[in-house]
Simulated scan of single mutants.
Amino acid sequence: MDALAAYPRIRFMGSKHRLAPRLAEIFATLPPGPAIDAFSGSGVVAYTLKAGGRETHANDHLTFTTTLAEALVANEDETLTAEDVEKLCSPSLDGRDFIAATFTGLYFPDVDHAFLDAAWSHVDELQGAKRALALSALCLAAAWKQPRGVFTVTTPRYDDGRRQLHMPLEDLFKEAVTRCNAAVMPGLASATCGDVFACDPGQAAIAYLDPPYAPPRDDTCYVKRYHFLEGLATYWRGQEIMWETRTRKLVKRHTPFGSKRTVRDALDRLFDHFSAPQALVVSYGSNADLDAAELQALLSRHRRNVRRIEIPHRYAFGTHGTAARRLATEYVFVGM
């Protein structure tokens, strides 16, 4: 699908950017009608569903990912003009300095922190899709400049030579605006930020579920890795900063999908919650604690016919050539 090439890329844990064309082929074989992407993450799968002509609803529990969906999936025709960009890049309206004061010496040079503070003084005057586009471009720029795209480290040791790591955030923001504007396309869609169990399946023909994969070790805490982007999307309003941490993390949000102790019950409840749609499409990775056979058995409790598709996949997470965890098989289950 040519439209998918327009979608801005972000280094996001579990992103389906590379898998989107294959998922589009699978979606095309399923019953027509509206679709839900209940764990929308980077937004690329919701965008894929919309590009396939389906009315689409994207849901995620993070604010910055929901903002991406508002700007690039739910938005039908609004873009940021050259005048909008010039204003967003102009001096601060009120001299605010929360980002500069909070993150000095951490992720970016002082001039970049000052740019983000100033840009937010103008974002506060925007509404609707333009506001979502401006915030999405700011988040994309920050993610592009941070090594590996995650905010768990404050040193340049993961510098992999990408030009974005050494560009001013203002320049990256302008690039991100261009990418976001180019991705806007017509079509009915919506976006919400909330718990997946509060997401109403409604009249959807397809529900796509890509929950966090419970790993044998470590964790799948998105807040830990992307706390700066979550804060940037809200200007840290309503966020609880852990001031004792060097990285200025936000308080972790529990998800039953992220732990091998609770994931089986959580998935069983999830499949039951989305029992109404004609088709259920579930993505899961081979590097999780739950294996394919067990997941298929869980899904078979709620769907009569379940088929499994295996896709070799390399996750764009990590930079070193020996990162074995990047190599995995993506399991896509289709339940009818």
Results as ranks from 00 to 15, higher is better:
Asp2Arg: 09
Asp2Gly: 14
Leu4Trp: 15
Leu4Pro: 01
Ala6Ile: 02
Tyr7Ile: 04
Arg9Asp: 05
Ile10Gln: 07
Ala20Thr: 08
Pro32Val: 07
Pro32His: 10
Ala35Gly: 15
Ala35Asp: 06
Ser40Arg: 00
Val44Asn: 02
Ala46Thr: 03
Ala58Asn: 02
Asn59Gln: 13
Asn59Arg: 13
Thr63Leu: 10
Thr65Gln: 05
Ala71Arg: 01
Leu72Arg: 04
Val73Tyr: 03
Ala74Trp: 02
Asn75Phe: 14
Leu80Lys: 03
Leu80Arg: 02
Glu83Cys: 04
Glu83His: 09
Lys87Thr: 12
Ser92Ile: 03
Phe98Val: 02
Thr102Gly: 09
Thr104Lys: 11
Thr104Asp: 11
Gly105Val: 05
Leu106Gln: 15
Phe108Asp: 03
Val111Asp: 11
Asp112Thr: 06
Ala118Trp: 00
Ala119His: 00
Ala119Gln: 04
Ser121Glu: 04
His122Trp: 14
His122Ser: 08
Ala129Arg: 11
Ala129Pro: 03
Ala142Thr: 09
Phe151Cys: 07
Val153Cys: 09
Tyr158His: 15
Asp160Ile: 05
Gly161Trp: 12
Arg163Ser: 11
Met167Ile: 01
Met167Leu: 15
Met167Tyr: 05
Glu170Pro: 03
Glu170Gly: 08
Ala176Phe: 10
Asn181Phe: 05
Ala189Leu: 08
Ala191His: 02
Thr192Tyr: 01
Cys193Val: 05
Asp195Met: 07
Ala198Gln: 11
Gln203Leu: 09
Gln203Asn: 15
Ala204Val: 01
Ile206Met: 13
Tyr208Cys: 03
Leu209Asp: 00
Asp210Asn: 11
Asp210Leu: 08
Pro211Trp: 07
Pro211Tyr: 06
Pro211Val: 06
Ala214Glu: 02
Ala214Cys: 05
Pro216Asp: 15
Asp218Val: 10
Thr220Leu: 06
Arg225Cys: 02
His227Asp: 07
Gly231Leu: 09
Thr234Ser: 15
Thr234Arg: 14
Trp243Lys: 12
Glu244Ala: 04
Arg248Lys: 15
Leu267Asp: 01
Asp268Met: 08
Ala276Tyr: 06
Ala276Thr: 15
Leu280Ile: 14
Ser283Pro: 04
Gly285Arg: 09
Asn287Pro: 01
Arg304Asn: 12
Ile311Pro: 00
His313Asn: 14
Thr319Ser: 12
Arg326Val: 04
Leu327Asn: 11
Thr329Trp: 04
Val332Asn: 07
